[in-house]
Write a protein that binds this DNA or RNA. Structure first.
Lengths: 202, 202
DNA sequence: GTCTATACGCTGATAGAC
DNA sequence: GTCTATCAGCGTATAGAC
């Protein structure tokens, strides 16, 4: 007389579980963003989401697993903004994203803190940032190379060097901005660099 | 019949105490540089210097005090290099220091990690980096302004914007370099930026 | 000045009832 | 799935003998 659960009846709990996971990632995102990974505790995340710390571990078996989930959530956050204009210069895209970031300080803080904290010994997020930086360098190098092929890159500027510089400049500006929001204009300085490297179009 | 200590006899212990403090700061410098401030423990520092953790607290009453001492040690470390050439361009000075930094990865790692970690809530080193960044911006802005007065700054480049960009670029490059030492050339990219902004002298 | 002993809190993680 | 109870460990910091 034991009930054999039907596959149809299973659907509900699954959806609820997914919501729970998302809520936990949201809370962890906030906690790690203001306290760092080492500085943030599972207890604080659990309090924020309104559940016990052990229940949280039911969804993410270890703290490291939770960090990985937070890092991979990035894409969906960045996508929340207005739809990316179809026809857009690389420079326009960079400045638009930089302006968007300024309206989400928590996002910048999380990635700025973690990009440096992951340098510590045996940090679970170690590979994530190395891979991310390498990917960004490749993407922007391709964009600069394309500009070069159209004669719009300042002569003497190497595309891959410009790509590395752009990524570094961006991160460094956000770091200074977080320390002194009123004294650093990320978009303006980024724009001045792009104006310096990219020649005005025909 | 109690001995009244003479002032002359006191000299020895004082010098020994100063050595001890220096050894502790050296050890803390190493520990915070590889594990961060939150991630490093007083026990690990004490082990490295060969004393008990409580004895360490005799010299620095709290962990925060030790951090402050480590941060202020920076100047004496940078000075350890070869004597700064008397006649030196600002660009030459930047590239020389960047090259020197590459031979001291621990130094870069310490300041890269702490410059981001201090963004977390109520971090004891909070003001240090805000002040440091502001000071660097002012100093380099003055250098760029001086170049401008001699007609050696590219027209259209604002000295204070260039200063902010230089500091940001430098920090961002070191961050990428620490993540992937083989893929990023800090001195080369810094040099290409300075070549872009500074016109060749007469 | 240096130590042992220890207080005391918080950490991530486990066991097991419901 | 969620909880309480609990674990073992590490953290900073203090008290006090020597």
């Amino acid at each position: 007389m034991t009930n054999v659960p039907t596959q149809l009846g299973r659907r509900g709990p699954y959806a609820k579980s997914a919501e729970r996971r998302r809520a936990i990632i949201d809370a962890a995102y906030s906690v790690f963003g203001s306290r760092g990974y080492q500085g943030g505790s599972l207890q604080e995340v659990a309090n924020l989401v309104g559940m016990s710390q052990t229940s949280l571990l039911h969804y993410f078996p270890t703290k490291s697993h939770l960090l990985v989930a937070v890092l991979n959530r990035r894409d969906s956050v960045s996508r929340d903004g207005s739809p990316p204009p179809a026809e857009e210069t690389m420079a326009e895209s960079v400045l638009r994203q930089a302006a968007f970031n300024e309206t989400h300080p928590g996002l910048i803080e999380l990635y700025t803190i973690l990009s440096a904290e992951t340098l510590t010994n045996n940090h679970p997020g170690r590979e994530y940032f190395a891979d991310r930086f390498a990917g960004l360098r490749i993407d922007y190098a391709a964009s600069f190379a394309e500009l070069e092929s159209r004669g719009m890159l300042r002569p003497g500027v190497d595309p891959s060097v410009a790509a590395t510089a752009l990524v570094a400049l961006w991160d460094g500006l956000q770091l200074q901005w977080l320390h002194s929001p009123g004294e650093v204009d990320v978009v303006a300085v980024l724009g001045s660099y792009l104006d310096l490297v990219i020649l005005p179009g025909e």
